[in-house]
């Protein structure tokens, strides 16, 4: 992720960050050693994983858990430990 550093002339004054939530452009998925995998067959869409994910990395589409935001998932494994149906497993990530 190559970031172009700007001149003092081209940034807002006071250190303000004007684009709310732009951390989504910052990739924390590279921190991961283990990666969560979803077994859709077992998932009952209880959304416990969504509630307890610290990195906002559970993807929900039309009320269905569809997978993970691997750009931001740090691989903490919390989703696995809260899943009541063992629909999520962690595996060593091949890089």
């Amino acid at each position: 992720m190559k970031e172009i550093k700007k001149s003092w002339k081209n940034i807002p004054i006071g250190g303000n960050i004007l684009e709310a939530g732009n951390s989504k452009n910052y990739i924390t998925g590279t921190w991961r050693t283990f990666i969560p995998r979803l077994d859709k067959e077992k998932c009952v869409n209880c959304f416990q994983c969504w509630m307890f994910c610290p990195d906002n990395s559970i993807s929900i589409v039309e009320n269905k858990m569809v997978g993970f935001d691997y750009d931001h998932c740090k691989g903490c494994g919390m989703c696995v430990s809260v899943c009541p149906t063992k629909a999520i497993t962690m595996e060593k990530e091949e890089k």
Partner: peptide, 25 residues
């Protein structure tokens, strides 16, 4: 008009630029 962030952590890569802005102001 839009939400924004004031007072972030400003490290070696931008703090200096913000000081320059104060200097120029």
């Amino acid at each position: 008009e839009k939400p924004f962030t004031i007072g972030p952590l400003d490290l070696q890569d931008y703090y200096f630029e913000h000081k320059k802005q104060q200097h120029e102001a």
